[in-house]
Design a binder for these strands. Sequence first.
DNA 1: TACTGTGAACCTATTCACAGCA
DNA 2: TGCTGTGAATAGGTTCACAGTA
Lengths: 204, 204
Amino acid sequence: MQSQVCLPEVTKKRMIQLLQLLKAWPDEKITSSDISQQTGWKPSLIRHDFWLLGTDFNGVSNGYYKDQLSEIISRQLGLQAESFTKNICIVGLGRLGAALLDQNTFPESEFQIKAGFDSNVYRVEILRSTFPLYPASEMQFVIKRENIKYAVLAVTDKDAQSMTDRLVKTGIQGIVNMTNVVLKVPKGIKVENLSIINALKLVI
Amino acid sequence: MQSQVCLPEVTKKRMIQLLQLLKAWPDEKITSSDISQQTGWKPSLIRHDFWLLGTDFNGVSNGYYKDQLSEIISRQLGLQAESFTKNICIVGLGRLGAALLDQNTFPESEFQIKAGFDSNVYRVEILRSTFPLYPASEMQFVIKRENIKYAVLAVTDKDAQSMTDRLVKTGIQGIVNMTNVVLKVPKGIKVENLSIINALKLVI
DNA sequence: TACTGTGAACCTATTCACAGCA
DNA sequence: TGCTGTGAATAGGTTCACAGTA
């Protein structure tokens, strides 16, 4: 039940994407070269990743069972429903943040939005959602009370660092950063950068 | 004027983020350890990146001039306004895609949205934006005519691959993928994955 | 035969160490 | 002294080669 090896970030990233692929995979079994065809990753790399996961898939000579593979990956990444608190919040309810309030953004039970925050009280009052919205001043209190562990940051660039500082103070563990700013956070807090503009510059 | 060395992706990513940091930097000069403090990257790594850029900054012993640094990075990454076609389109006008229609999402002159597409004709008709929206059936035609080179994909997961295939046929060069799906594209087409759910799993 | 499991070999990225400059 | 520029050293990631299995 324990294991959960320390995996390189790159491997984690691939495994998370692979989980999505497996979800849509039509057959019962899948081979490393099937995966390679879909993703472009070399078959040997995929097998090597599985090896790093440490568990023995009984996939020898025959490909892997989709369901079993999903389950093992989820477990080794600590993604199993019961193994982590999946409460999240949205910080910044401008057009982008408000779009994330949609139920369909997080259809999977893996994550559950518990709160939305904005320093503009007007937004907090007029926006509709299936969970409560609060003024940013209540962040500290609400995040503690609701046991929120992760935040999606969707504020304007100029507010990005100050909101991050406040989030950090609440004891949040990870931030998905939709702004264009490079956030300064203490060690131990994980940040994933999802700036659309920076991504566009990268595909050039 | 030419140069524009072949840089590792990781270095590009850092340099693109650094450009954002420089934009907001208050002083005229900046040192590699200033940058390190803001980003967490080791000063030696930053200097090494600059070295890979190949140009001689006259930053010896004194830090770098912010403006000069920005300019050199932009040039070496081929990000200068005149050096590439920055026309983009949004594919998928659900809540997320529609949010991107906002002027403020792409305030910089670097990218210009030329079109939005959705297979749902209703959305195309009722949404308001400063540029035209089209049914997906007109993608091929419009993308050619408007000389659109990059796309932001914001459709549902189930439409992700089919829309990608259509984009690829139009000759698009890069895709920013906001879906959770691992896209299958021919070599030479760049994809950046910006799935919020996958990012959340990664910050766990 | 067609696949996986595995460690070595290779390649890529980061860090170190230090010379050189203001 | 405090910084950059630079190549060498190290660490990290990917690919290869092949033994082992159904």
